[in-house]
């Protein structure tokens, strides 16, 4: 259960940051959907709804997405879907229902670095930077690895338009449940980016697997070898949703499926 003493709608991000920093117990509200599931005693709830961070701007070389943009807006955005082969749509589609997707925000999702996140795994195979209001720009990969140095507000992200192929794979007990394991892959020219999430730790790039696949043909033998490298380099764990061994075995299957999809598309 959460408790809130005071509810505040700042109109600028400066005002939001100032209020956030006034007291340790003050907290930001994005969609507020995930906060509901936990417990927190808040002084002032700083709701970002009126700060003007709900937008997707398509530029010539990149997309900029404001922190308060909801999952449904991202999922249904034509430009993003066209450019990234429906990567985000595929990653978001199975998250509960449309109503929840109309509520949850990308800023909260990225800042919180949830291990179970489907969106973060997909985002990690793109060239993305995050803008923290106070700390400035940082690569998504570095942010996921290290988190913020100090309390901050995630203001927006910038996804470079790269010419590649993008795939997302997940395994769920049932549609709309959390992923047991998920994997995203992108291929630009001969370079791959592969991210594994819901390990159950947060999404991580599988660098050795990416290096192995670079400039290699996608043959049955190479897929087997890549799967073996992936299952050794990525750290898997056990939770109520699946065991370490199961995740390890299934990650190989997801990689194979993603590689096969890319290979079929190319040929």
């Amino acid at each position: 259960m959460i408790t809130i003493r005071k509810y505040f709608f700042p109109e600028t991000i400066e005002e939001a940051y100032e209020t956030l920093m006034e007291k340790k117990s003050n907290a930001l509200i994005g969609g507020g959907a995930y906060l509901k599931l936990g417990s927190k005693a808040m002084g002032t709830a700083v709701d970002l709804s009126k700060v003007g961070l709900d937008y997707i701007r398509e530029e010539e070389s990149a997309f900029e997405i404001g922190a308060m943009t909801t999952f449904s807006t991202v999922m249904l955005h034509e430009g993003l879907n066209k450019h990234f082969d429906n990567l985000f749509q595929r990653a978001i589609e199975d998250i509960v229902g449309m109503q929840l997707k109309n509520m949850v925000t990308i800023g909260a999702t990225i800042y919180s670095r949830y291990g179970f996140s489907d969106f973060l795994t997909a985002l990690l195979v793109t060239n993305t930077k995050v803008k923290l209001f106070n700390a400035g720009w940082i690569s998504l990969n570095a942010f996921l690895e290290n988190g913020p140095e100090k309390r901050d507000i995630l203001e927006k992200i910038r996804i470079e338009k790269t010419n590649g192929l993008y795939r997302f794979q997940d395994l769920r007990g049932s549609s709309s449940d959390y992923s047991i394991i998920n994997l995203a892959l992108s291929k630009e020219k001969d370079a791959y980016r592969i991210a594994v999430g819901a390990r159950p730790g947060r999404a991580k790039l599988a660098v050795k697997t990416m290096d192995f696949l670079q400039e290699r043909e996608v043959t049955a033998e190479n897929m087997e070898k890549a799967g073996a490298i992936l299952s050794e380099e990525v750290v898997f764990g056990t939770n109520g949703r699946g065991s370490k061994e199961y995740r390890k075995a299934m990650a190989k299957v997801l990689l194979k499926k993603a590689l096969q999809e890319v290979s079929i598309h190319e040929n």
Partner: peptide, 21 residues
């Protein structure tokens, strides 16, 4: 925020009222 029973429209957008402050 999982079953949809509490769905209402907030400015014409469907949301789960049990999870909306």
């Amino acid at each position: 925020e999982s079953c949809g029973l509490c769905t209402v429209h907030l400015d014409d957008v469907a949301v789960l009222s049990c999870g909306t402050l």
